[in-house]
C-alpha cells in the first residue's frame, strides 16, 4: 500500500508530530512497508471464519475501590496550581 507525502503529512498532523520534509519522505515508504506487513493478516481470512466470536466482555460489580493518593497524582503533574494540572491555554474559540 502506497502512502503519499500528503497522507503522511496529514497523519503527522493528527498525531501532533512535527516532521521535516525529509522525514515525511522517509516515512511514506517506511509506513507503507509496515502496513503491507499487516496485510499478511488478510491471508488468514478464511481460517478466521472458523474461529468462534470472542467471548463477551467481562463486567464487574459497581463496587468502589481506592483511588490514587493525592500525593501520587500531584507528583505526576509537571506543573500545577493548587490541585490542578496546569497546561498551556487551550484555544477556546477563534
Amino acid at each position: 500500500m502506497g502512502f503519499t507525502i500528503k497522507d503522511i503529512a496529514y497523519i503527522a498532523k493528527l498525531a501532533r508530530l512535527e516532521l521535516s520534509e525529509d522525514e515525511i519522505e522517509q516515512f511514506s515508504s517506511e509506513l507503507s512497508k509496515v502496513v503491507d506487513y499487516f496485510n499478511q493478516l488478510a491471508l488468514f481470512e478464511e481460517e478466521e471464519k472458523e474461529i468462534k466470536t470472542l467471548p463477551s466482555v467481562l463486567e464487574r460489580d459497581d463496587n468502589i475501590s481506592v483511588s490514587l493518593s493525592q500525593e501520587i497524582v500531584l507528583s505526576l503533574f509537571p506543573s500545577r496550581i493548587d490541585n490542578f494540572l496546569v497546561v498551556p491555554k487551550v484555544r477556546k474559540e477563534e
Binding site: V73, I81, N83, F84, L85, V86, V87, P88, K89
Partner: peptide, 9 residues
C-alpha cells in the same frame, strides 16, 4: 484570569 488552563481529571 489565567494565561494557562487548569485540568481536573
Amino acid at each position: 484570569k489565567s494565561s494557562d488552563s487548569l485540568v481536573d481529571f
